[in-house]
Design a protein around this nucleic acid. Structure first.
Lengths: 208, 208
DNA sequence: ACCTGAACACCGTTCAAGT
DNA sequence: ACCTGAACACCGTTCAAGT
């Protein structure tokens, strides 16, 4: 009979948590406002008391999906970038259709702000100017979202038994992880050679 | 009174062409089977005589969107890769929500096969083995799809007057093109340094 | 503050039947 | 071969009203 025991009357947190569970169990196409309401034992219109619309709900899910960065962060900046990229991939893969959820809210400045910040910091530790670091981080983020979206779509088709032109892409987790790492290595390698070509890394430590 | 003059009775080609026009005029969310049918002055069910479902129709659109490669193709392989990447971006940008349409069918092995082939050939001309060329091309494709998806989503939000956390991304075409080229340059640079580290380019000319 | 009940304006897809 | 007409099983969102 504690006040928290009340079975009806949900909070925004409940709604987000249940939505995340539904997403992971059934996938994004089946995450409808009506099904979510049913899972909470509530009328669909009740959801609009917690979120103004579905897009805002998805943005909240995106924030949660990418909330975790690399920990611990390697000392060497190239390893740090690789670790942040891998952590981003892990986060996206941790929920079904995670990459698509994040992509769908990325352009609003929501959802992907946290990983963009982390990647930018990791690159900046290599001594690049802010502009270069931000652009490289954006490239890494675009690659990661493109790659994992592809992975998850493929996983979905495979699970549905849809016949796919299999020659194009690897299907074992090991191969997929290697293909992802290959792309990240190219981007990091490009940064390193850029460094070698022109830029002299200043010791960037201007903040507390 | 020529036989081609018949105003009803459509062909698969008509349907695809009208769908592409609707896509470009109104965007992917408004490209519904019912609106497409109305644009063709036909019942929705008539569309299923030409395409088994909406997904197959979108795959056909994706193929058309990315059908054009770079022409002429520069002699130097790094320039060829950059040209193919830029041509891919141009193709995706040529239709509203083009990147999303291509992404949505990519995992089926449809839609993105042509640009993947072209990018693979351009990279292979640098003397890399087939596996490396295919992986690099895949990374370029993932980056391009991620980047242009982001661009087009942002364009859509801007046109709808949605307030966006603007600090994150550039909004002028010049800046967007430069950000895209920066990412491509990183990937190409990574390939070049990889070449320098280990690989000796064999003259690959084993086919007619 | 949180929810119900009812409605509005839509979707993709199927299927028997027509020509 | 190509299409109609009608239906099925859904969507997101709004809004007056209840507690």
């Amino acid at each position: 009979m504690a006040p928290t025991d009340n079975p009806r009357r949900h909070t925004r947190e409940d709604v987000a948590r249940t939505a995340l569970r539904l997403l992971d169990d059934d996938g994004l196409p089946d995450l409808t406002m009506r099904r979510l309401a049913a899972a909470l034992d509530v009328q669909p219109s009740a959801l609009y008391h917690h979120f103004p619309n579905k897009q805002t709900l998805l943005a909240e899910l995106a924030d949660r999906i990418v909330s975790r960065g690399a920990d611990p962060l390697p000392a060497e900046w190239t390893d740090a970038v690789r670790a942040e990229a891998a952590a981003l991939r892990d986060g996206l893969l941790a929920y079904r259709d995670g990459a698509e959820v994040v992509t769908s809210t990325f352009a609003l400045g929501l959802g992907a702000a946290a990983p963009l910040d982390r990647l930018t910091r990791a690159v900046a530790a290599g001594g690049f100017d802010d502009e270069t670091a931000r652009r490289a981080a954006t490239a890494l983020l675009h690659f990661a979202l493109g790659h994992v979206s592809h992975e998850q779509q493929r996983l979905q088709y495979d699970s549905l038994g849809v016949v796919v032109d299999a020659a194009a892409t690897p299907f074992e987790e090991e191969d997929r992880a290697a293909a992802f790492a290959f792309g990240v290595d190219l981007l990091v390698g490009g940064l390193e050679s850029r460094d070698a070509v022109g830029q002299r890394p200043p010791v960037s430590r201007s903040r507390t």
